[in-house]
């Protein structure tokens, strides 16, 4: 036998150290060096979810050395294509959501969500439909009547074309029996601008996430007509669209995908990590703080749900004349 090489000696030490650490850990193995891709800029919805997951996973000691990477652009497709084509050394996950499904379609992205693997749906947000406090529109029924009488006369302020707000407005129009291509939808860069346009009375109606409008609703500066989810939100006295007589229900869901080349062991570890996370009190607290709805689905249910969303969103975009 030859003498112990220095390299194999240090390898031996590393293995021993890892074994000791594993032994000392809890039942749930810690995922090390997890990378989270948020396919949008800092402060966006995807980014907020990525950073909420980061904090909770760290607090619950389910993962360590977590890094969030923001890649903005193309309705999320730039981040998606970087995620799919990039080399991965560590376990990685990517945030996905309603807007990215639409983004892939509207930008005709060569790389699609089919090149990633669904892991879980985590949460959802409801939109709210608001009018300025001094508007003569008092209820959803008033709005629908006005829309039927003169579709072009009702201007809707909302987010990007093909995004959640836009699809929702299209569906409301359809439910009211109005030609979706006649809808006067005015694109704004984010909820802040939508709010400003609505508060200033420049647009007839504003459509954005409940949490973004909540302070103004509570202060009585805008009137909330309905929310898009099919369940009321605690602490907010606003009917659902269905209760208000419009047969539409839509939730702006977000979830997690992983790279198809991720090792099976890592895939399993990530799924289990998320399944444990959603049960933790700090995750529940994080949801409540941000007004997010718990919509957790494991991969077995999330996969089919994603397929169904792809079909539904494509159909809505075609009806609105965005896709040919």
């Amino acid at each position: 036998m030859t003498s112990i090489h220095r390299r194999s000696f240090s390898k031996f030490m590393a293995v021993t150290a890892a074994a000791i650490m594993l032994g000392a850990g809890a039942a749930q193995a810690e995922v090390k060096g997890l990378e989270i891709m948020a396919p949008s800029g800092p402060g966006s919805g995807y980014d907020q979810l990525a950073r909420a997951i980061q904090t909770v996973l760290q607090d619950e000691k389910l993962a360590s050395g977590i890094q969030v990477q923001n890649v903005a652009g193309g309705g999320g497709t730039v981040g998606l294509s970087q995620y799919v084509t990039g080399k991965k050394r560590n376990p990685t996950i990517m945030i996905v959501g309603f807007a990215l499904v639409g983004g892939v379609l509207t930008t005709k992205s060569a790389i699609t969500l089919d090149q990633t693997t669904p892991v879980a749906r985590l949460m959802g947000e409801s939109d709210v439909i608001v009018v300025p406090a001094n508007s003569d529109i008092k209820t959803m029924a008033d709005l629908v009547a006005k829309l039927k009488a003169n579709p072009g006369g009702v201007s809707w302020a909302g987010g990007s074309i093909g995004g959640f707000d836009h699809v929702l407005v299209g569906l409301i129009g359809k439910a009211a029996g109005v030609d979706p291509t006649k809808i006067n939808y005015v694109v704004h860069a984010g909820g802040g601008e939508v709010m400003a346009s609505t508060l200033g009375g420049h647009a007839t109606v504003g459509v954005s996430g409940v949490e973004e409008f909540r302070p103004q609703i509570e202060a009585g500066q805008v009137r909330a007509l309905a929310i898009s989810a099919d369940k009321r939100i605690p602490g907010l006295d606003v009917p659902t669209l269905k209760e208000a007589g419009v047969d539409v229900s839509l939730v702006n869901w977000r979830g997690i995908m992983t790279h198809p080349e991720t090792r099976e062991a890592d895939k399993k570890a990530i799924s289990e990590m998320l399944a444990t996370m959603v049960k933790s009190p700090s995750w529940k607290a994080a949801l409540e703080k941000r007004g997010w709805i718990d919509t957790y689905q494991p991969a077995a249910e999330f996969g089919p749900f994603l397929k169904q969303q792809q079909t539904q969103i494509e159909g809505a975009l075609k009806e609105a004349g965005i896709l040919k």
């Binding site: 984010g190 400003a196 949490e211 703080k289």
Partner: peptide, 25 residues
């Protein structure tokens, strides 16, 4: 108003929410 009009303001708004504080009127 709780209106974020720049990227930094949007992050600060998210930070307010992290602490359970609702900026606005």
């Amino acid at each position: 108003l709780g209106l974020p009009t720049s990227a930094t303001a949007a992050i600060m708004l998210a930070a307010f929410q992290q602490y359970g504080i609702q900026p606005g009127p």
